[in-house]
Computed example of a mutant assay.
Amino acid sequence: MSTPITKLVLDFDGTCTRVEQAAAAYLDEYRAGLADHLAVTEEAWAAALDRVRSRSPKIGWMVAGTPSAPAAADPYILAYEAAHHLLRRTGTHGDIPVSVHAKAYAACPAPWREDARSIFETVIGRGIEIWFVSNSGTAYIESRLQEVFQPGDPLRASVKVQSDAGKFKVCELPWEDDPLLDAAARDLFGRIPPAFPSAELGRPIYLRRGSYFHALSRVFGGNFDALRATLFCGDIWELDLAMPRLLGARVHLLDRAPPFDTCDYERRALAAEGEWAKGGVELTSLLEWL
């Protein structure tokens, strides 16, 4: 593996932030936000959260209609699945507006990992470009980066954001012509198998995430040869890392903190990739690649 790393693609929530420290406040705010759409007592909400936790990771995050990640991988996924469990249990028609999550998320920002700034400095100092590719919005991540970089900080130019990635969408590429999705890129995507079967989970691990691939086409300017020189870092194997690893990138899985612990199947998937995959507890573990 002689190709030097020139790009680091980072997930945001859980990867660069301590979501476990914001979880309790976020889940309370989310429940409060449900009031106009679904009457939920504290007891019913706690029971729904426990029900989802007890079934994860065999049940997945169904936001786009197909399981895309463990249902209790972080507080945001957990809240979505608990709320929709209650909708079904109560026979309530309609859906939960995305504003319920958006308001709770904005009200309860998870703090940055303590080593984030030092890692950014080290990585940029090695001449490596940093990209955030996350389900969280581009504008939101840009605003959170202001907590890390003061105005005029020259390092900020080496940290780019290409977010709103929709990694949870198990879907095909848009059919319209796009200069960043040429025939070679579409052929590359077309060779991704739909899913890996998993007897352990009792559900497939879905791989063809067209929205995520499309976001990466913007990171690479359509040149997917750059995957070989790119390191991906995330905290959820199937959401952040499974597709990039299959496409030829190196991947790094960060452990999730309790109560959102990394699953055993994720650790086994990481180990199966040999020298192409590593993991760690803190962001500083990324330095093993450099």
Rank of each mutant, 00 (worst) to 15 (best):
T41E: 10
P174K: 07
V148M: 12
H85N: 05
G222V: 13
V133Q: 13
R203D: 04
V219W: 01
E81F: 03
E172K: 12
Y26S: 12
G190I: 11
R117W: 00
R126L: 09
L239W: 01
Q146E: 15
P4D: 03
K160V: 04
L287R: 15
W61H: 14
F168C: 06
L247N: 10
G91Q: 06
R228N: 12
L287D: 12
A71I: 02
L86V: 08
Q21C: 10
L78H: 07
P57Q: 10
V40T: 00
K278Y: 02
L247P: 04
A229L: 10
R51A: 15
L10E: 08
A69R: 06
W276S: 14
G280I: 09
E273M: 02
R89S: 00
K58E: 05
A82H: 12
W175E: 15
C171Q: 09
T15R: 00
G152Q: 12
F213N: 14
E142W: 00
H101Y: 14
G279R: 13
L49F: 05
L290P: 00
L145H: 13
T66G: 03
E172G: 14
I128H: 01
L49A: 06
F168I: 04
G280L: 11
S211Y: 02
V161L: 02
D164N: 15
G248V: 02
I5W: 01
S2Y: 07
R256K: 13
A249M: 11
H84Q: 13
L286N: 07
D225E: 15
A25S: 13
R113I: 03
I119A: 11
A184M: 13
R228I: 01
G14D: 05
F232S: 08
A44Q: 09
L188Y: 04
R144H: 08
A35M: 10
S198C: 14
D178L: 08
S2Q: 14
A79K: 12
A199L: 08
P109D: 00
